[in-house]
Amino acid sequence: MNMDVELDGLFRHNDSYYYDENYEYKEDFESKASKAVLIPVLYSVELVIGLLGNGLLLAVLAQKRRSWSISDTFILHLSVADILLLVTLPFWAAQTALHCESCWDFLCKISGTVFNINFYCGILLLVCISLDCYLSIAHGIQLYSQKRPMLAHISCLMVWLSSLLLTIPDWIFVVARKDPAQEKTECVHNYSQSVGDWRLASRLLHHMLGFLLPTVTLIICCSYILLQLQRSSKGLRRQRAIMVILPLVVVFFLCWVPYNITLIVDTIRSSSKEPDDHLSGSPKGSLKTALMATSVLGCFHTCLRPLLYLSLCGNFRRRTLAMLRCATVESESSLWELGVGEEALPDQSHEGEMLKQMTSVDHVQSTEQC
């Protein structure tokens, strides 16, 4: 029996397969196309709702300028920071589009810096508001007072200065760079010309001073406030203030924590690579997509905050509706019910507080002007 196997035909089979290096899978193309459409749409929705809400808020504050309060000062600065971020959203939407090939370094630096300034201002201003509430409940100390309005203005000025200092790395390292893979220009941090590991230093500055330290402060203040409210009654005015402050803090964290966690993951992964691999400062693959998606979520708080004011602050809601009906409303009550700058009330029963609220008279005057 002949057991020889002829392999000649197998090895003489010499078909060649050529793979195009520029071949792009259909799934990748569809993913990029859907991302290029979805994210600009989300930015557009945030822009419209955010400008309408914050514009309405500024209009209400302009009507109330004769009876300015400490709470109005903090709300104004929060709204200004949100409007600055909203103005840059068209730029981010254009950059996300697949065929956006023109992008200037100056616009990149401004947009990247304003993005981080909004985050720093938002969390630091919430720290100021929460500290005032904490000191008032825990120690009976009024950090801000209507008799000393300058302290509130100085605090807001320090918040803006701190935010500008924390964004110095963005002014230095953010540049517009052409991405050959996607054939479009993107705003990235370029550390290739820097001396030393500036990328890690700037990230640690953001994580420690811009995120972790204010977050720990907010958690401690809010936790203590909740515990004190469960143990004893501090009056209906103080309880209403907590019911406004806590949702503002929770919504801020829900919007910004995913982005910061993703950024921390990117920092850890980049620090474990060789220096030449991460000097460009641009994340790759799924991490880049996650940063893009979570940054959209972070910007979403700019249009959620005015909606929170409308749902939580009854006086602001009534004044807004009156303004839309072309009527003027003047009231001695606080619009925001944050309790910032208001004298702390002594402990008393709910019945006595309710009686005081029922017997108090708000000077409300409504006159048709249209």
Rank of each mutant, 00 (worst) to 15 (best):
N2P: 14
V5K: 01
E6W: 10
R12A: 11
R12L: 05
H13G: 00
Y17L: 13
D20M: 04
E24Y: 13
K26F: 14
S31Q: 03
A33H: 03
S34E: 07
V45Q: 05
E46C: 08
E46F: 11
N54R: 13
N54A: 09
G55P: 00
L61R: 10
Q63P: 00
K64F: 04
K64G: 00
R65G: 01
S67M: 06
S69M: 08
S71V: 12
D72I: 00
D72A: 10
F74K: 08
F74R: 08
L78F: 14
L78K: 03
I83M: 09
I83R: 05
I83W: 11
V87I: 15
W92N: 04
Q95A: 08
H99G: 13
E101F: 06
C103M: 15
L107M: 11
C108R: 07
K109D: 03
I110M: 12
G112T: 08
F115L: 12
I117G: 00
F119H: 08
C121H: 03
L124V: 00
L126K: 02
L131G: 00
Y134A: 09
I137W: 01
H139E: 13
G140I: 06
Q146R: 08
L151K: 15
L151Q: 14
A152N: 13
A152S: 15
S163L: 04
L166A: 13
A181S: 12
Q182V: 03
E183L: 10
E183P: 00
K184Y: 03
V195P: 00
G196K: 02
A201C: 02
S202L: 09
F211S: 12
T215Q: 07
V216E: 00
V216Q: 01
C221L: 00
Y224L: 10
Y224Q: 10
Y224E: 11
L226K: 10
R231S: 14
R231L: 09
S233W: 03
L236V: 12
R240T: 12
V249A: 11
F252Q: 09
F252M: 13
F253Q: 09
C255I: 05
Y259P: 01
I261R: 01
L263F: 12
D266I: 06
I268C: 04
E274G: 14
L279K: 15
S280M: 07
G281M: 12
S282I: 11
P283K: 04
G285R: 03
S286Y: 06
S286D: 08
A290T: 06
M292N: 10
M292V: 12
A293T: 08
A293W: 13
L297H: 04
L297A: 14
C303Q: 07
L304R: 01
L304A: 12
R305G: 02
L307I: 15
S311N: 05
S311Y: 08
C313P: 01
C313D: 08
N315Q: 12
N315W: 02
N315A: 06
R317M: 02
R317H: 09
R317I: 02
R317A: 05
R318V: 06
L321M: 10
T328W: 04
T328D: 14
S331M: 09
E332R: 10
S334P: 04
L335C: 04
W336T: 06
W336S: 10
L338G: 02
L338K: 07
V340E: 07
G341Q: 03
P346Y: 08
Q348R: 13
S360I: 07
H363Q: 14
V364N: 10
T367P: 00
E368M: 11
Q369L: 14
